[in-house]
């Protein structure tokens, strides 16, 4: 089980959290200008890397807040967690 560092509450076991998918997937500022390829990319395509991955987690059974985690998807090692709006380390 992952030990996830919530930036607000500290280290907590994974079962307190809900996974929120890849982080930094930004919805277009003007959706009317996005073509089919753009929507496909936004809705369906993901980096799915073997290695460093920025992802969202929500401390569902804790403070309830969303934050981001940088985790290696091959070793499952968590390198950093940071608040929403902060730049990716």
């Amino acid at each position: 089980m992952l030990l996830i560092p919530c930036p607000y509450c500290g280290n907590r076991p994974e079962i307190e959290f809900a996974y929120g998918g890849e982080a930094h997937v930004v919805r277009a500022a003007d959706p009317g200008q996005v073509d089919d390829a753009g929507w496909t990319e936004f809705l369906y395509c993901r980096n799915n890397p073997r290695g460093d991955h920025a992802e969202r987690w929500r401390h569902a059974y804790g403070c309830g807040r969303f934050f981001n985690v940088k985790r290696n998807t091959y070793t499952d090692h968590i390198e950093a967690s940071y608040r929403i709006g902060e730049t990716r380390p």
Partner: peptide
């Protein structure tokens, strides 16, 4: 498991 991973193992819960 909830998260993407290539580790071929998961958590016990």
């Amino acid at each position: 498991d909830a998260y993407i991973s290539y580790s071929q193992r998961g958590a016990l819960h």
